[in-house]
């Protein structure tokens, strides 16, 4: 399983402060702790919600620079704004990166998919379109189709695409879990070369004992065929659950990673 560490997100007040104060030690330390916990990518989202587009571009350049000066690990450059994505990728200067994200919307596809082609980086593609997040599995697959067409046009291979069929809080509608899980299974069936990714912890938003819901949902998603997960790697429980789910789903030869983690 490919794990993407979600902690560097400027919607969290502590990270927002790091970005605003240009706290290079703080941000690279947060990246390092996630890398040490076993993630494959560190997500970098510096959108503080205040300030101009130019502001977010500069913040992204600073954050990427600060992290890669200290650490040699793939980064997930995370923004809804193509200009910010491009600034991050330029700063990476060819080092392994993931582009997070594009959606099935004309403008986004035309601006972000060419970046994935030019930089030859994996691309997270949200299965949402102009109308928002589709309610049904079928409509999420339609969004995938649109993304596929754009990828073919700009020469991005499906192996490089991580479809994210979007996790919505179970607390607002108890059908949300199954729609997302079925979408994972269907995407794997319809687009066998593509990969799938989910931001697991969104499932438990607004409910108590979030760890329990996150862990159970992760198990179900791995069974459904999930390839990658955006998680909080500093939550030891969730990292343990990844190993548990993978061994049970037959993805851990001779239980290696499971026994390495838990043998006495």
């Amino acid at each position: 399983m490919i794990l993407i560490g979600e902690k560097i997100n400027a919607t969290l007040s502590s990270v927002k402060a790091m970005v605003q104060n240009r706290d290079a030690i703080g941000i690279s330390d947060l990246a390092k702790r996630q890398a040490d916990a076993g993630t494959s990518f560190i997500d970098v989202n510096v959108g503080t919600g205040v300030g101009s587009r130019e502001n977010e571009v500069q913040s992204m350049e600073w954050a990427v620079e600060a992290i890669q000066n200290e650490l040699n690990i793939p980064l997930s450059i995370d923004s809804a704004d193509p200009a910010v994505l491009e600034a991050g990728l330029k700063t990476r200067n060819g080092k392994p990166s993931m582009i997070n994200s594009v959606k099935a919307q004309k403008e986004s596809l035309e601006e972000v998919v060419p970046l994935a082609s030019a930089y030859d980086n994996p691309l997270v593609a949200l299965t949402m379109d102009e109308t928002g997040i589709p309610k049904t599995v079928q409509d999420r697959l339609h969004a995938c189709e649109k993304i596929l067409v754009a990828c073919e046009r700009y020469g991005v291979s499906m192996e490089n695409v991580f479809f994210d069929p979007l996790v919505m809080p179970i607390g607002t509608d108890t059908t949300h879990g199954l729609v997302t899980l079925r979408a994972v299974t269907e995407i794997k069936k319809e687009f066998p070369k593509a990969k799938t990714v989910l931001g697991i912890s969104n499932i438990s938003y607004g409910l108590p004992a979030r760890n329990r819901l996150n862990a159970a949902f992760l198990h179900m998603a791995i069974y459904a065929g999930l390839d990658a997960a955006i998680v909080d790697p500093l939550d030891g429980e969730i990292m343990a659950e990844v190993k548990t789910a993978e061994v049970l789903a037959g993805k851990d030869r001779y239980c290696r990673r499971y026994t390495r983690a838990f043998r006495k």
Binding site: Y254, T259, R263
Partner: peptide
Amino acid sequence: YLIPDMLA
């Protein structure tokens, strides 16, 4: 070593 280690 556990059983899977020996099987490997």
